[in-house]
Design a protein around this nucleic acid. Structure first.
Length: 352
DNA sequence: TAGGCCATCTGGTCCT
DNA sequence: AGGACCAGATGGCCTA
C-alpha cells in the first residue's frame, strides 16, 4: 500500500481526532481535567479495533503471497505490505501513540503551568507564553541566586532588569506592571538616549516619587491606576547602603560581601517575606486593572491558588500591608528545603 | 490579513 | 515490541 493511500486513510482518523479537540475539550485539557468524553470514545474505538484485529490474520497471509511477481524486487529491507490487519494494527499503534503523546504534552503543560505560578507576575487571565515563562523563570532563578550569593538586597531597578533580560516587550511590560515600574526605566537598550537606570522624561529622578507611566506607551497595555510610588519603600533599606546612585546589583560580576552562601543550584524559590514584606508597605492595589490583569507578585501563602495577590485581585483591593505575609507559609507544594531557603532569604533581608 | 501561540499528529530515534 | 522523547508539519484561534 502506498504512502498516499495510507495517509488518506489516516487522515480520516485525524479528522476524528480533531473532533475530539474542540475548544471546550482543549480548555478542559488545559485545566488538567482528564478522562473526558473524548478520551473515553477513543478508548472504545481502540477496543473495537483490537477485537477486529484477529479476524484478519489469515487474510493477511493470502494477500502477502499475491504480489511480488509483477513488480521488480526492491533492495533493502523488505517493506511489508499494508494488509487490512496490518493497517488496523498500525492504526491502533498510532492512536495509542497519539494518546500517549497528548498525555505527555498535557503533563508538560501542567508542569509549565506550575512554573508560571512560582514565577513573578502570575496571571490567570494573561498567561505568559511558554517560552516567556521559561525565560522569566531562568532570569528569576538567576536573580535569586545572586541574592543568596551576595546576601544583599538588590535595588528594584536592577532586580527588574535582571528579570526582564531577554524577554519580549509585552512580557517586559507585564513584569513592569507587576512591579509597578515604567519599563523604560529598566530597558536602557530601548532608550539609547538615556543612560541606564535614568528615569524617563517626565519622571522625577530616582530616588523619590516617580509617576507610573503606562506600559501602554510602549506596548499598548491598558494603563493601570498605579498612581505613584516611592521606590525607597519598595525594599527595606540595607544598612550601609543608602539609596542615591543606583547601585547595580546584578551587574554580572558581583562582589560578595554578605554571608557566605553556596551558590544555589536550587529549584525556584518563593521569597516569602523578603520582597513581599517590603512590597507590602507601599504597594498599591490595582483595582480596575485587575479585571483584565489579575497580577500577583505572589509571594506569601493562601489564596485559591496558594498565591495571594500582593496587589489584590478581583476588586478586593487589599493593601499589601493587610496581608500577614511574614507569617504565611509558601506555596502548597514547597518543600522543606525551599522553606529553609526562604528562611535564609528572610534572614538576609531582615537582618541587613 | 499576517504573525504569534498553541494543540495535535506523525515519523524517527533511542532505550528497556 | 513498545514506550519515551523529539522535532517538523499542520491547522485553529487570537490579536494588532
Amino acid at each position: 500500500m502506498t504512502r498516499s493511500v495510507l495517509e488518506e486513510q489516516m487522515s480520516v482518523e485525524s479528522d476524528e481526532q480533531q473532533e475530539l479537540c474542540s475548544p471546550a475539550e482543549r480548555e478542559r485539557s488545559a485545566e488538567g481535567v482528564t478522562g473526558g468524553g473524548g478520551e473515553e470514545e477513543e478508548e472504545d474505538r481502540l477496543h473495537h479495533l483490537e477485537e477486529d484485529e484477529d479476524d484478519d490474520e489469515e487474510e493477511e497471509e493470502e494477500e502477502e503471497e499475491e504480489d511480488g511477481e509483477n513488480k521488480p524486487k526492491r533492495r533493502g529491507p523488505k517493506k511489508k505490505k499494508m494488509t487490512k490487519a496490518r493497517l488496523q494494527r498500525f492504526k491502533i499503534r498510532r492512536m495509542k501513540a497519539n494518546a500517549r503523546e497528548r498525555n505527555r504534552m498535557h503533563g508538560l503543560n501542567d508542569a509549565l503551568e506550575s512554573l508560571r505560578k512560582v514565577v513573578p507576575c502570575y496571571s490567570k487571565t494573561q498567561k505568559l507564553s511558554k517560552i516567556e515563562t521559561l525565560r522569566l523563570a531562568k532570569n528569576y532563578i538567576w536573580a535569586l541566586s545572586e541574592i543568596l550569593r551576595s546576601g544583599k538586597a538588590p535595588d528594584l531597578m536592577s532586580f527588574v532588569q535582571a528579570l526582564c533580560k531577554g524577554l519580549s516587550q509585552p512580557t517586559t511590560n507585564l513584569v513592569a506592571g507587576c512591579l509597578q515600574l515604567n519599563p523604560r526605566t529598566f530597558l536602557p537598550e530601548q532608550t539609547p538616549d538615556l543612560p541606564a537606570h535614568l528615569p524617563p522624561v517626565g519622571a522625577s529622578s530616582y530616588p523619590g516619587h516617580f509617576p507610573y507611566q503606562s506600559p501602554g506607551l510602549t506596548a499598548g497595555l491598558p494603563s493601570p491606576p498605579y498612581g505613584t510610588m516611592d521606590p525607597s519603600h519598595i525594599f527595606h533599606q540595607v544598612k550601609g547602603q543608602p539609596y542615591g546612585p543606583l547601585e547595580p546589583f546584578f551587574d554580572g560580576v558581583l562582589v560578595s560581601d554578605g554571608p557566605a552562601f553556596d551558590p544555589p543550584l536550587s529549584p525556584p524559590l518563593s521569597i516569602n517575606g523578603n520582597f513581599s514584606s517590603s512590597f507590602k508597605h507601599e504597594a498599591v492595589a490595582a483595582t480596575d486593572y485587575d479585571k483584565s490583569f489579575s497580577f500577583s507578585v505572589h509571594y506569601g501563602g493562601g489564596g485559591a491558588g496558594g498565591h495571594p495577590a500582593i496587589y489584590g485581585s478581583g476588586g478586593s483591593n487589599p493593601r499589601c500591608g493587610d496581608l500577614q505575609v511574614d507569617g504565611l507559609m509558601g506555596f502548597d507544594g514547597h518543600s522543606h528545603h525551599e522553606r529553609l531557603m526562604n528562611a535564609q532569604l528572610n534572614a538576609i533581608f531582615h537582618d541587613s
